Simulated scan of single mutants.
Amino acid sequence: MELNHEIIDTPPRDAASVVMLRDGAAGLEVLLMRRHTDSAVLGGAYVFPGGKVDKEDTAPDLLARLDRDPAELHARLGEPGLTPAQAAGLYVAAAREAAEESGLLYLQLGDAEVATRSAEACERLRTGTTFGALLAEREARLDTDALAPWSRWITPRRPSVMNKRFDTRFFLAAAPAAQETRIDDFEVTEARWLPPRTALQQYRAHEIDLAPPQIISLLHLMQYADVAAAMQDARARRPALVEPEPVETSETRVLCYPGDPMHSVPERALPEPVPTRVVWRNKRFEPPEGFGPFLD
């Protein structure tokens, strides 16, 4: 994508994403979905299921279908600048977008019942049925307890990857039991369950494309042995706030994160050994020392 590198003065659009996890034969696996190559945002890249918050995500009748009070969800996110309804709407958007893109539903109806209806329900969401109407028909509640706030990424005002700005909250979640991934083959054209290490190896080999938030998140996920460990850690701490700061050097582009010597925030947002910057080399963002120390 051609970037104009001019300062973007418009505020970032609220968005939400679900980092879906499962335990595989080789350990922790994460769901990555390939966006359609014609998509205006990260076309062709492999991302976590997610998208923009819609006005309907904070509708009172829909918020009444949550398993938790909006005030409790507001406290979990740890963002004083939001209202409880706005915080709850982020949970709704995360679950709705996950259902539309991956075919996986987070509802409190019992694993077997949700599994038998998930394909039909997600198809209806894709064709215009509102999330609130679907929950009301099923007399179901949205399972916000399944979604653990994990990190918050705000696109920088000076573009380095894309010319649109988003304020995206990432939630960790175990894949719902007994459900199968089903893509819409419109916004999303492929789904892969991969160990974080394998996903990064494929990215390094130019087999898949990833954006910096996914690269850093996958490096972060490598520290967890299984889903239980990842979920426990996410629920034990406040979500990390990551506001990348781009730096142009004579050789390349650099994206710095909190804790980096060139970032305005001196304290780390993400734990070691997650790098505090990535650099653009060989048409790839990678840690300054390359992926070797992490993957080889």
Rank of each mutant, 00 (worst) to 15 (best):
M1C: 05
N4S: 12
D9V: 12
T10G: 01
A15F: 05
L21P: 02
D23S: 12
L31W: 10
R34A: 12
D38V: 06
A40G: 14
G43C: 08
G44S: 09
P49F: 11
G50I: 11
G50N: 01
D54L: 14
K55L: 15
E56L: 11
P60M: 09
A64G: 13
R68I: 02
P70M: 02
R76G: 05
G78V: 05
G78D: 02
P80H: 09
G81E: 05
A85D: 15
A88Y: 03
V92G: 06
A94Y: 11
E97D: 06
A99I: 01
E100M: 15
L104E: 10
L107P: 00
L107G: 02
Q108V: 02
G110P: 06
G110M: 05
A112G: 09
A112C: 02
A115F: 10
T116V: 13
T116K: 13
R117W: 08
R117T: 13
E123Y: 07
R124K: 14
T127M: 03
F131S: 04
F131H: 08
L134S: 05
A136N: 07
E137H: 07
E137T: 14
E139F: 03
L142K: 08
L147P: 04
R152A: 06
I154L: 09
P159G: 12
P159C: 11
M162K: 09
N163Y: 07
D167E: 06
D167W: 00
A175F: 04
P176N: 07
A177K: 14
I183R: 06
T189V: 15
E190Q: 09
R192P: 07
R192K: 15
P196D: 12
R197W: 06
Q202M: 15
A205Y: 00
D209M: 11
D209G: 03
D209F: 05
A211T: 13
I215K: 01
Q223F: 03
V227L: 09
Q232W: 00
Q232Y: 01
Q232R: 14
D233H: 10
R235H: 05
R235V: 09
A236N: 11
R238H: 04
A240E: 03
A240C: 06
A240W: 03
E243Q: 11
P246F: 00
E251S: 12
T252S: 12
Y257V: 10
M262Y: 07
E267Q: 14
P271H: 04
E272P: 00
V274A: 05
T276F: 02
V279A: 09
N282Q: 13
F285L: 13
E289K: 03
